[in-house]
Nucleic acid binder design. Structure first.
Lengths: 360, 360
DNA sequence: AAACAGTTCTACAACGATGTAGAGTGGCTC
DNA sequence: GAGCCACTCTACATCGTTGTAGAACTGTTT
């Protein structure tokens, strides 16, 4: 056992003095250099244990020019999707010896830009960034000189690696799922008017495609705007749609939070789900398996997104010559059918343990 | 506008050369030292802008002995309570110029111990730690030589500042709420057998107190164990209780996830909530305002916990002489009554915007 | 005109680690 | 026994910044 835990830190000098070697030898031991006599190594290790020495990471970082930290910029952790994503990214990073520093942009444009150029950037070796407000017009700001991986296909051909799911296809599949159940008056919640390349636009596009392929017209009255993709805005939009008197037999929430907000309103108004209105969401956050009714949704392969992003970033960080062309990885998605579209006959996944369940 | 964004970083030397001053003067400008001629300052600032210079934080950290980063160790971000807590802590830290580095312990004892002594510690100036598995027997491990604030009252009289809510009182109030509604067969979900000082034990204690004050016996058959406080374990425990055949007219979930899991099972079994069984949770995560029915819960003052913890930690970090006795701050709680106990007459908070709502 | 306080700036040595270069060992080959 | 390779270790410079001490200038006071 170690004895020391003193106020000020022990340095390699002190360890070296105690072990009777040079500080470089201590450094070599710490870093697992191969040519060290076992006897020396033992002496150094004993000294390290005695003094409770630990490497000063700031000094190492300065010397090595690496910090071992990667940044993760997301809108807000209080949005379950991003909390779960952060969880996965942290796990993936940890498995590769990296630490994660989280920044919240609050979906505010200025703050998204700040993340790209801010001071904080220098604490990290690279950045995984999920921008919501930046668009193609910001391509310049996104042309940064450090490793970066973007999540989402918002910035087409942008100057960085991208990890994204196939938003159009996934939204089309979600809509198709509703069409297959015989629904014809499918409302959308979460559209962003005027946007052309964001997740909202792409998912709406997938929705349109599915309808058109089915030979249906897209009724603008069924497309509900919702700037922020929160439960509250989902609820408000659902109310607006219902109050408008338009006929609706299904709702496609562009994310789960919106769909859950909608579900809440439908329940409050005693509208049967899926009897009168079927509901599908997008993201497969854990909550969807426990809502009443449970929510059918699109699973975007969160783990896959996280590990791919970390791997791509790490590759960029360790890249010798930074010439490699930027890649775009498109991850798999799957429709997870639950009660909100299939009704009670759907298997109720009561005992579904979280993927990364931990011991008691 | 700045011109440069070169591969390797610009240093103070280059700025100094361009501005025709010493590097210390550049440092002085950067740090807002007062005795600098306006003309000099302008020249330096121009050079900084031209070269796109940014301080190398690793070097500054090394020199100053501070990193400006605080650690936050929580079980998992995929648990909404901790995601929301992390959100609040990040905001509070940011307002004070600090960055937050999150570690996930997964409620695994070894990992909780690792957090205390691990390498990563050196990246931070202090730690906000929410331990779940450590107990009084770990007081030694908790006696660290760096600033630390513990969340939760698990380690009584432990060698650190604590921020906690009054678990016993809050649980008593929650139970009282159910008693006031005429419930007499109140089940608990989430007890930890054998534990005496954790949140589980304290909340169960509050539950017992309320029952005893009401002149009721505590029926062991009503106390449901659940190691992990997840939705899945809540659902499992609820099923076990129902299957046991014991009479139940109310359920107290020791956190919201457990209560939501229970709600899910009750819904699946078509048991009316609150008609047949009333349900109350604990934590006031956002989801509780949108579940069906909405969930009555105990609001532990998350923002207050976060800001208090950050303030305490900062005080420790900036403390000149580290003699000050450890404090324990107990935050306020409030019962948030919703449909799961009050039924439909409860106001449905459809438009309840999140506290930190951001612009569209 | 000397002394002094108040400015403005600079040189140099840190902070604690690691990379480089090279000095010693010893053993082996020819 | 000279040369060479494989080990084992060390001295020193270096990463980019900031603290310390003090030099140089200005203006004011005596």
């Amino acid at each position: 056992m170690s004895t020391a835990k003193r106020g000020s830190a022990v340095t390699m000098h002190e360890v070296a003095a105690r072990a009777g070697v040079s500080i470089k030898t201590v450094s070599n031991v710490v870093n697992g250099y191969q040519y060290i006599r076992p006897a020396t190594k033992e002496r150094v290790e004993a000294a390290i244990a005695d003094l409770g020495y630990q490497v000063n990471i700031s000094a190492r970082n300065l010397r090595r020019g690496r910090t071992g930290i990667i940044g993760l910029a997301v809108p807000e952790l209080s949005l379950p999707y991003f909390a779960e994503l952060a969880d996965s990214v942290i796990r993936a990073a940890e498995a590769r010896g990296l630490t994660v520093l989280i920044e919240q942009t609050g979906s505010v444009r200025e703050r998204e830009l700040e993340v790209l150029s801010g001071q904080r950037r220098h604490l990290t070796d690279g950045l995984i960034f999920s921008p919501l407000e930046l668009g193609p017009q910001d391509a310049d700001a996104l042309r940064v000189d450090y490793p970066m991986v973007l999540l989402g296909e918002r910035i087409f051909g942008g100057p960085a690696d991208h990890v994204t799911m196939n938003n159009i296809e996934a939204a089309r599949a979600a809509t198709q799922h509703l069409l297959d159940l015989g629904r014809r008056r499918i409302a959308v919640i979460g559209a962003h008017e005027g946007e052309t390349v964001g997740s909202a636009a792409l998912r709406v596009q997938g929705y349109r495609q599915a309808l058109e392929e089915a030979g249906l017209d897209v009724d603008p009255a069924l497309v509900g705007e919702a700037g922020l993709w929160h439960r509250a805005t989902g609820a408000e939009t659902m109310e607006r749609l219902l109050d408008s008197g338009v006929e609706i037999d299904a709702v496609f929430g562009l994310n789960d939070a919106l769909a859950l907000g909608a579900l809440h309103v439908l329940h409050a108004r005693r509208i049967d789900v899926p009897g009168q209105i079927a509901v599908i969401g997008f993201d497969d956050i854990e909550e969807t398996a426990y809502s009443s009714p449970t929510l059918t949704t699109v699973a975007p392969g969160r783990e896959q997104i996280a590990t791919t992003a970390v791997d791509l970033l790490l590759a960029r960080i360790e890249e010798v010559e930074p010439g490699k062309p930027f890649v775009q990885v498109i991850t798999d998605f799957a429709i997870v059918g639950r009660e909100s579209t299939l009704g009670e006959q759907a298997p109720v996944p009561v005992s579904r343990a979280p993927e990364h369940a931990t011991a008691t």
